[in-house]
Structures are given as C-alpha cells and as structure tokens.
C-alpha cells in the first residue's frame, strides 16, 4: 500500500522486472515501507506501491509496478509496461543465470515498453559477498554497452536501495523536464557511465517516513 501524498508535481510509473527470486518485491517494500521479508511468496500478477521523493525541488511520486518474475504469472505483458517511464531490471549477484537473463528482460522492454524508457540494471543481494557470481565490473561494462544505468543493492541491509530509486527517478525527471526528446537516435540522451556518482537532492526527508540514509 502506498503512502498517501498530498501533492506532487510528477507521477512516474516505474516497473520492476527480472527473474523470479531476485528480490524485486523486497526492493519495493524496502523502498516504500522500509520492510524486508525473507520468506516472501512469489508475486502473482503485479503488486503496486507508491512513494514520493523530492528532486530538484519538485515532488515526484513514483508509482512502482512490481511484476511477477515467473512466466506463468504473466499472461498480458504489454499492460505491465504501458505508460512506464522507468524500469529497474533486477538480477541476483549470487545467481549468474539471473544475470544472463537480463538480456531477455531487455528484449521484453524493447518489445513492449516505450523506446525512451529509462532503464537501470540492478544487481541485488549485494550482501551475499561470499556467494557473488556476477563480478561488479562485468555487469557495469554490460550496462555501459547497453546504455543502462547500473547499481548494486541489498534490500536486506538497505544498501543503495534509496539510491537506486532516487537515481532512476532523477533520470526520468531529466528526460521529462526536457519536454522534448530529440528524434535522433544518436543524440546524447543516452546515459553515460556515471552511475554511482549521481547526487541526490538532499534535505527533503518527509517526517513520517523514517528512511535510511543513502549510505554505501
């Protein structure tokens, strides 16, 4: 359930996609409710949540669609991507297969989502250091080659969860506030490799949420 926000300047729909079990629902619950559930069941269909953040003095309300990773739970895919301006493609750093499948998820975005959608590659479960199967550099390079933003997170210990959402929402805001996307495919809308260094608009903590700081 989303928090009720009174006013906002922008409403962005962001989808969470990726293989089953990579931690999409926990990323969402960590970001919107600051909750984590080790025993969470697999999502059926879609779950929704919202949270507002401040970017550049504007209130941005994120409407986050947490989709089911399992194919059998996804009959109509196009509906999930409709109107989405951002996508977090999540994999599990401890399971290489989930990283390999990122290609598949990107293809699905190409097929169903808006071509201008802002995409961030998210390596989740970064707390599982001893089990790491996907080197950070490898994923980072992949993200660069594919013009994706990149970040590693841990929904369990909260690492970078705030940053991940803040970064993608900020990027979406940049695109949307530009108003006009240039047509040329080779122009400079494409993200560069600046992933970890994006600064997030400070001092906007709404009092009712006790959010963890973005610490890494």
């Amino acid at each position: 359930m989303g928090t009720k926000d009174d006013e906002y300047d922008y409403l962005f729909k962001v989808v969470l996609i990726g293989d089953s079990g990579v931690g999409k629902s926990n990323l969402l619950s960590r970001f919107t409710r600051n909750e984590f559930n080790l025993e969470s069941k697999s999502t059926i269909g879609v779950e929704f949540a919202t949270r507002s953040i401040q970017v550049d003095g504007k209130t941005i309300k994120a409407q986050i669609w947490d989709t089911a990773g399992q194919e059998r739970y996804r009959a109509i895919t196009s509906a999930y991507y409709r109107g989405a301006v951002g996508a977090l493609v999540v994999y599990d750093i401890a399971k290489h297969l989930t990283y390999e499948n990122v290609e598949r998820w990107l293809k699905e975005l190409r097929d169903h989502a808006d071509p201008h959608i802002v995409i961030m590659l998210v390596g989740n479960k970064s707390d599982l250091r001893h089990l790491r199967a996907v080197p950070t550099d490898e994923a980072k390079n992949f993200a660069e080659r594919n013009n994706l933003f990149f970040i590693e997170t841990s929904a369990l210990d909260s690492t970078n969860v705030e940053s991940a959402f803040h970064n993608i929402l900020t990027e979406i805001y940049k695109v949307v506030s530009q108003k006009q996307i240039r047509d040329s495919p080779d122009d400079d809308n494409s993200p560069s490799s600046n992933v970890q260094t994006i600064t997030v608009a400070p001092t906007v903590n709404s009092p009712q949420n006790k959010r963890p700081c973005c610490s890494s």
Partner: peptide, 12 residues
C-alpha cells in the same frame, strides 16, 4: 487461484 491477470486487474 493464482490467476495473474485477474489479480493484476483487481490490484490495479
């Protein structure tokens, strides 16, 4: 019933 589409519609 794990009916994904109907779950999606109802939640939406």
């Amino acid at each position: 019933n794990a009916n994904a589409d109907i779950v999606t519609l109802l939640r939406l």
